[in-house]
């Protein structure tokens, strides 16, 4: 019974930094500037401009997540395989970018992609036409993938690493070809890691605002940008909070949906 004392600090932490802020957001979302009850801001979330921004955010985050999965799964497999387990350095190289500040990396990416940036300078040196890279949706997705790829690799790597190799051997002994071993044994067993990776990539991608500003040159307003504008420029805390609520609901729904396809409820390796 005494052990519950240990949870005290955590409970206090949760109340202060999770529950209180949520109540503030709720309060602002359902009041107008004078503090009276109003659903005006909630309704504004359903206007065509907001919906357009919302769909764009989900679209870009979705593309980013798919690319991260396609790139990240093989990478996680390679890192988890026997041949590479010895090479700790390789693993470090994959997570090394995460040690550097995210904003700094994004600024660096910006100077790569600019019209007179490094990539175009090289292209022109070899006589090619310069490309329009900065300020496109592609640049935004590139920035997201670059920043969030490690979040996909790590949980999948963990899931693959702790997989019982005897199961795979058994499948091989029973005559399954490599493709079948992968589709019927390895992949299903790694799903908790995949789901974890998807949530860890999708969530920051759908809420980002710095990447879309720096790499999209402010041409593609995402939900994160819209919320930032409401708080910092328009001082419409009510609409900003309503948008934040809106986004939270979307995230909760998508996590719920993801957890449904998770077959291994109860013993998950991921965070969710």
């Amino acid at each position: 019974m005494k052990r519950s004392y240990f949870s005290g600090p955590y409970a206090l932490w949760m109340v202060l930094f999770t529950i209180c802020p949520m109540i503030f957001v709720l309060y602002y979302a359902f009041t107008n500037g004078d503090g009276g009850f109003s659903v005006q801001s909630i309704l504004e979330c359903l206007e065509p401009t907001t919906i357009r921004v919302f769909l764009r955010s989900v679209k870009l985050a979705f593309i980013c997540t798919v690319i991260c999965l396609i790139l990240g799964y093989p990478a996680a497999q390679i890192l988890a395989s026997k041949d590479f387990s010895k090479y700790k350095l390789l693993f470090v190289l994959f997570i090394l970018p995460m040690w550097m500040n995210f904003l700094l990396r994004t600024y660096a990416t910006m100077s790569l992609l600019e019209r007179r940036g490094i990539i175009n300078t090289i292209l022109e040196r070899f006589g090619f036409e310069p490309l329009t890279l900065i300020g496109t949706e592609g640049a935004v997705v590139f920035g997201m993938v670059y920043n969030y790829l490690p979040f996909m690799i790590l949980p999948i790597h963990t899931a693959l690493k702790k997989m019982d190799t005897r199961v795979i051997e058994a499948a091989q002994d029973l005559g399954a070809n490599p493709l079948r071993v992968f589709t019927r044994v390895i992949f299903p067993l790694s799903i908790p890691g995949v789901i974890s990776g998807i949530t860890m990539v999708f969530m920051p991608a759908v809420t980002t605002f710095a990447i879309s500003r720096l790499l999209g040159s402010g041409n593609f307003m995402l939900l994160g940008d819209m919320i930032e504008t409401q708080f910092l420029e328009m001082h419409d805390w009510s609409f900003g909070s309503a948008l934040s609520m809106f986004m939270m609901v979307i995230i909760v729904l998508s996590i719920g949906l993801l957890n449904r396809i998770d077959p291994s409820k109860g013993e998950r390796s991921g965070n969710w």
Binding site: M110, E114, R115, R116, I134, G135, R213, L214, G216, S217, G218, N219
Partner: peptide, 19 residues
Amino acid sequence: IVQGYLVDEVKDKMIGGEA
């Protein structure tokens, strides 16, 4: 026509001949 909507980054971009 618009290459972007920015504030702080514009001066460096103009110095670099981006627009």
